[in-house]
């Protein structure tokens, strides 16, 4: 039964618009698969966090299994204008 529990991963939707992500902080469980879905609502954005293996662009998703507890920052890495450099969010893996 426990084996089937993770057949369907949790889905976390991250909405991106200039120059913010919503939500700006997401809590994940270490070892639990989760699908991160990026929705760009005004123009194309990216969502990048190397330690978490996130490299999304536009409207895109990826399923990850966080291996390490900690706080990880993710950034928009698709240039979107003057405030792009401060467009970021946080993942907390517990």
């Amino acid at each position: 039964m426990k084996k089937n529990l993770f057949l369907f991963a949790l889905v976390v939707v991250i909405n991106a618009k200039r120059f913010e992500f919503s939500p700006s902080e997401v809590h994940l469980k270490r070892g639990v698969p989760v699908t991160i879905r990026l929705v760009s609502t005004d123009r194309k954005h990216g969502l990048s966090s190397k330690p978490l293996g996130l490299e999304l662009d536009g409207n895109d998703e990826v399923t990850i299994t966080p291996a390490t507890a900690g706080t990880f920052h993710a950034i928009c890495d698709h240039y979107c204008g003057a405030g792009h450099g401060n467009m970021k969010m946080t993942f907390v893996v517990e």
Binding site: S48, S49, K50, A74
Partner: peptide, 8 residues
């Protein structure tokens, strides 16, 4: 990388 100081 978290300051976008990288190239993919």
């Amino acid at each position: 990388p978290d300051w976008e100081w990288f190239t993919t």
